[in-house]
Design a protein around this nucleic acid. Sequence first.
DNA 1: CAACCGTGGAC
DNA 2: TGTCCAAGGTT
Length: 346
Amino acid sequence: MRDPQVIAEKLLAWYDRHARALPWRVPPGQGPADPYRVWLSEVMLQQTTVAAVKSYFLRFTDLWPRIEDLAAAEQARVMAEWAGLGYYARARNLIACARAVSALGAFPDTRAALAELPGIGPYTSAAIAAIAFDRPETVVDGNVERVVARLFAVPTPLPAAKPELVALAGRLTPQDRPGDYAQAMMDLGATICTPRNPACGICPVNDDCLARSQGIAAELPRKSPKKPKPLRQGTVWIGWTDEAVLVETRPARGLLGGTLAFPSTGWDGSDLAPPAHADWQKAGLVRHVFTHFALDLTVMSARLDSPPGRGRLLPLRDFSADALPGLMRKAWALARPQARAGGDEL
DNA sequence: CAACCGTGGAC
DNA sequence: TGTCCAAGGTT
């Protein structure tokens, strides 16, 4: 590498002209941004697209404008608002972090102190420190990994290449405007230096890119082969009365931990018996793909005539499918016509 | 360190 | 339809 600072300057100049306007973002040169909004957006954006996050971010900041408001919220309410966004440990950690920061009185302003908070790891701690506190920390997410792997033509496959990429990224990080620079790198990766068909022709640092000069930009970064996903099978039980539906809160840890759900069996280690004695009818089959396995879930539906042995009856006026994770929304969509055919008003 | 942990959109 | 992927963290 000849002159890292020249590359950083080119990226900042590009960002000044092409920065995307986002709900959580402060325009170039107008930072630093509000730590609460930076933190909330960064957690939501973990492994999640900008398009998916926008409405959730607006909803959360409308409901809870300050971190103290979020800290005071009930866990079930926050989980319901997070429903559909995925990776629910983020929501559980979000609440714990909000309460910790509230107790402290303010967000810590160093990367090391931020990294001690729940749900804040190497990436997010660096991002908050740079964007909200103007600290020259090196922010390395998937975008930065890709940009750096191409700039320096790193042939090592991920995740083994991570330390090497972090070291190279560190050499580029400027002392001035680290927050804008971090967002510039991520914007570049999101809009120009994309995984497939990178737009090298309009890239502000194409003259500095080794991969491009070697004609291998689109092939980098290389990745280790991934393992196949096994297929699991199970059953979900949607029981209802004229006034209520049978639900439960899933265990606090593990898959869909802490979310509102219909009782299910046979696929996640839970009990095999139906949650209530009833005339169960098959309503359909849900196919769902999780991170590390696929699931065929048989949806059973029934009007309940006796008290359930599992879960709780939630009054319909307190129930909304919006509060369910995606898998359970799919199941509800199939069972709902069954309920209606039974004379219910669902 | 590898497994675990969601979801929806793009191609 | 299948595959890849998105501003990762925790254990």
